[in-house]
């Protein structure tokens, strides 16, 4: 019974912290460095450690929220459908950017980790880190990585993309909102997409498209390429 109560406690606390972190970011005029996910997760880890609790104590609350990620991901079909004409008119840049961006995300992660001497298990876990959580977990387990760690690395990747994306595009001088959104979704999945929707509807839509297509491409191609190189 106390387990159930503790689960409810962490669940309510997570939603509360998320809400506060969002308000905090709003006060800072939506500054990307104030990522609600990173702030809320860091505070929760701090509280768990302070209370002498392991991740196991948080898991029930976590799995309730994680369940919503499925229908939340499916919801991306709606902006995709509403902007279908615009997406179709950019089919060529979209396809080329998807293939090269997706290959860069996975390939450079694997090569950097491998060159710096990471264990094969960690390299496999890093490979799918640019795609959304449920897909990254499935791919990681297929190629010999650790699914739960993959999920955590996905969040860190999303945080880096959401925080640094706008600055990177400004330095490069990329101003087309479709290009900015698309790169955001390719590199930083749903967290990049949430950030892109804060900037504009067009950027958010292209980010959602990129995230979806990258998830499909990575899920199909990565395990096959992995087999080939093994």
């Amino acid at each position: 019974m106390s387990g159930v109560l503790e689960g409810i406690f962490w669940l309510v606390l997570t939603i509360g912290l998320y809400w506060l972190a969002r308000e905090f970011q709003r006060r800072l005029n939506g500054h990307p460095a104030a990522s609600p996910v990173l702030i809320a997760a860091a505070i929760l880890i701090g509280l768990l450690l302070l209370g002498g609790r392991s991740y196991e104590a948080y898991r029930p609350a976590g799995s309730v929220l994680l369940w919503f990620l499925g229908p939340g991901t499916v919801a991306l079909a709606v902006p995709l459908y509403l902007n279908f004409a615009q997406v179709r008119s950019a089919l060529l840049p979209l396809t080329v950017a998807l293939v090269l961006g997706s290959a860069t995300a996975a390939g450079s992660a694997v090569m950097i980790a491998w060159a710096l001497g990471a264990t094969p298990e960690i390299v496999s876990t890093l490979a799918p880190k640019s795609v959304t959580t449920p897909i990254a977990m499935a791919v990681a387990s297929e190629i010999g990585g650790i699914p739960a760690l993959a999920a955590a690395l996905v969040i860190l990747t999303g945080g880096i993309g959401a925080v640094c994306g706008s600055a990177v595009f400004n330095v490069l001088g990329v101003r087309d909102p479709r290009a900015r959104g698309f790169a955001m979704g390719t590199a930083a999945h749903g967290m990049g997409t949430a950030r892109a929707f804060q900037v504009s509807f067009v950027a958010g839509t292209f980010s959602g498209v990129a995230m979806t297509l990258n998830a499909i491409l990575t899920a199909i191609a990565l395990p096959l390429i992995w087999l080939f190189f093994k």
Binding site: T14, A41, K129, L153
Partner: peptide, 30 residues
Amino acid sequence: LNLFYIPAGVGVMAYAALVRQDWLPIVAAL
């Protein structure tokens, strides 16, 4: 959508030892 990503972020703590061991390649790769 961000709310539903928080639990996976908290999950980092369960792998702290593994991450600490290979922290440089992980951070550099990310």
